[in-house]
Structures are given as structure tokens and as C-alpha cells.
Design a protein around this nucleic acid. Structure first.
Lengths: 221, 221
DNA sequence: ACCAAGCTTTCCAAATTGGACCAAATTAAG
DNA sequence: CTTAATTTGGTCCAATTTGGAAAGCTTGGT
């Protein structure tokens, strides 16, 4: 993804310096923030550089151009996000299906708070057809969704999740899990809901579980 | 909101011409589309004028500036939206609470498809604090939410809606009701869900009701 | 010390921005 | 059918923003 990494081709190669990595990270986070606030079109590379506290030509240096930077930034969040969920699944692999999925939702909700850009960027790009949306779907959404559809189907077979189109059910769950956190600014003012409060996140998790997984879990042996 | 309407102050007043109304409507719809796709910052008045098929100085003439145009456009959707929901409530006022609310959800979902900008604009503006968000909340969200919170509380008291913070519950419902339709472009590609199909909308409605209003409705006398 | 990696500074040409201006046209009203 | 106000077309502008090039400086690996 980054220039330096892929530059290992000709003769002289020297390993990437630490400060370079730091700069890239700063740029990626700033890009994420900016893109999630103003969309791809509404964001200028200069704005990103400013947020990162970096001179704007460094974007060209590190990421070639705006598109590449967007992709690198999106890739970072979604990769992180999926890793985070996978970790939760593995960590709770010996618990009953309902508990496992509840933990997954919890992980989703907490990740969404730590990185609300996850959901915002998705909505931004989904607002009209464009190559970035296609990339996002093929690279991250489809693989992730596919695996989760099956989880949902299991839960339905066990009578834990309600019947109906599992894809629809899944999308509802992901929407509330990520969407509420993305609306943080609004909810505080419109509904007296403080998404910074851990208590709120737990309430959200509990409610999602109560609503979307109403079936009884098997009593633990 | 429009200039001509408020220009009734000095001496000579002549009623607004028909073509003027048409132009304003075209501009409002174009503005909505553009703002929902690219956000406020990412949208230029020229882009809006082009979508509307009118010369861009007409925006200045009819709406003074970009901010006023945004507000007029947002006001139009939200007013329409609330009117639509209010109509549903009134139309079903003699049905049982669960049926009434189910109809409300249905009205929400169908409106969200006819005007996905409703949800998109909300997410766009909520992505960072700004005066437009404040206006939106005070003018439309709070009044609408307040009334609906109470409906939810009733349903909870009747054991139809699950317990828990009614505000949280409400926001979940509105998120899935509006959000799925806003993600239309993505869902088709990522989940084989076609939000243009009426059948899908009915499935969505039914699932929301099944999930969020699991309690038994009183048998109709 | 050498030299590539990384960064700063400066500059530019092109495009876009919101908005001003005024003459032409359309139309409501008498 | 006049007439005057409304609405629109066409043009222009000054300011800002855009992505990117160029050239030289600093840092750090070897």
C-alpha cells in the first residue's frame, strides 16, 4: 500500500525509517477523520495534511495521490475492525452461540466508538455508486458479511435469532451497532444519550442482544 | 423561506409566478440530492444548479446563498417526512397500539425509500458539530422525537416493546427504518438485497416489527 | 563520511468557488 | 393591451483552492 514498502525492487534498498511510519500513521488517521466528516469529494489533501500536522506535499510522497490515500486509510480501519471482531470470536469460542454473538456485538459497538469513521465512511461512499464503494465491498464487506451471515443462520436454526432473511437481519444488527455511535453528536443533543459513556455502550449492547437474540441460550454445563 | 414569499413588505406586491415555483422545486430537489451525496462542504452551488438544469445565479436569486438553500431543502424533506408519519398515525388512530406503530414504521420505511436523502443528510450533518445540525435538531428532530418517545413508552408499558431506555430503543428503530434504505447502493452489491423491490420493504417492516415489538397485541374486539 | 530516505519550502497553472451585475424575457395586474 | 414587477439569461470577477512539480535541506542507516 505505501510507497516505500513496494519500492523494494531495484538495487539500493534501505529499510523504512521510524519517522516515516509515524508520518504515515498521522496522515492515515487524519485522512480518516476528514473523509468521514466531509466525504471524499469534500475533502482536500491540504485539509488532511493540516489535520495531521504535516506539510501537504508529503501526501504525494507517501501515498502518491488522494485516491491511494483514501484506500490506504479505509483499508486500515476495516482491517483493524475485522481483526478486532475475529479476536472476539476466537476469545469466546468455547462459549455458547448466543454468548459468542453477544460478545461480537459488544466488540462491534466498542470498536465503532473508538473509530466512528468506520460507519461514517461506509455511509458516505454508499450514497452514490463509485469505484471506492466497489472496492470496499469486494475487499472487506463481502468477506466479512459472508462469514457473519452463516453465524446468523446458525442462531436462527437454534431459535435464538428470529426467523426471516438472515441477510436482512444481519444488516439491521450492523446498522444499529455502528450507526448509533456514528450519530454521537446528534444523540447527545436530540436524545440525551451520551455515547462516550461506557454505560451507554453496555446498554446498547444489551438492548441489541435482547432485541435481536431473544431466544433462550442453553444453560452452561 | 423563499425570498419572494418574505418580500411582502414594502409597496408593490405581485404574486409569485408559476415558473418561479417550478424553479425553486427543481433547485430544492437537486440540492437535496447533491447534499446527500457529497455533504454540505462537498457540494457546490454550481453542481446543484446543473442538476436542476438552471443557471446558477438563480440560486442567489431564490435562496440568497448556499446555507439558506440547504436549510430550505432540509426543511422541505423533514416537513414532508413528519407530515407523512403524522398522516399514518391519524389514519390508524383506531387500531391497537401495536398495529398503529407497525403502520408508522411502514410509513417510515417507505418514505425513506422515496427520499433516502432524509437519512443521508442526517448522517452527513451529524458527522461533526455544526450550526446546521443544531438547527436540524431543534427544528425537526426534537419535536418529532419527543412525541415518539412517548409512543415507545406506552408500548413498553403494554409489554409490546421490550424494556430498557426508550430513547435508545427509539433511535435503534429509526436507524434501521431509515438507514437500510440509505445504504441501498451497497446492500444490492454486498448482500443481494434490493431496496427498490416493494417486497423487500415489506420484509424490512415486518422484521422491524417482529424484533422491536415482540409482545402480543390485544386481540381486536 | 557517504548517500538514500525523508522532509521543508516555494512556486505554479488550472480549476472552482460564491456571488455581483444588468439587460432581456416573461408574466401578473390594472 | 399597457405597464411594471418578477424572473431569467448571459457575463464577469475576485478570491480561494486545487493537485502537483521543483529544488534544496535534514536525518539517519550503513
Amino acid at each position: 500500500m505505501t510507497q516505500s514498502t513496494s519500492a523494494a525492487s531495484e538495487k539500493s534498498r534501505r529499510k523504512q525509517q521510524q519517522r516515516s511510519i509515524v508520518t504515515q500513521q498521522k496522515l492515515l488517521e487524519a485522512a480518516l477523520e476528514a473523509f468521514s466528516e466531509n466525504g471524499f469529494k469534500g475533502t482536500s489533501t491540504r485539509d488532511i495534511a493540516e489535520r495531521a500536522g504535516v506539510h501537504h506535499p508529503l501526501i504525494t510522497y507517501h501515498f502518491k495521490n488522494k485516491d491511494q490515500l483514501w484506500q490506504a486509510a479505509a483499508d486500515k480501519v476495516f482491517r483493524d475492525f475485522r481483526r478486532s471482531l475475529a479476536a472476539s470470536l476466537e476469545q469466546h469460542q468455547h462459549e455458547c452461540p448466543k454468548q459468542r454473538f453477544a460478545s461480537l456485538i459488544r466488540a462491534y459497538v466498542y470498536y465503532a466508538r473508538s473509530q466512528p469513521a468506520l460507519h461514517k465512511v461506509m455511509v458516505q461512499e454508499a450514497s452514490y455508486p463509485n469505484p471506492r464503494l466497489d472496492w470496499l465491498i469486494e475487499t472487506h464487506l463481502r468477506p466479512f458479511f459472508q462469514a457473519t451471515f452463516e453465524l446468523i443462520e446458525e442462531l436462527q436454526a437454534l431459535g435464538i435469532a428470529p426467523p426471516g432473511n438472515p441477510r436482512l437481519l444481519f444488516n439491521m444488527i450492523r446498522l444499529v451497532s455502528g450507526g448509533l455511535l456514528a450519530l454521537g453528536n446528534e444523540l447527545r443533543q436530540s436524545s440525551d444519550i451520551d455515547t462516550n459513556d461506557d454505560k451507554t455502550l453496555d446498554d446498547i449492547t444489551d438492548m441489541i442482544v435482547a432485541v435481536f437474540l431473544p431466544g433462550e441460550a442453553k444453560a452452561p454445563a
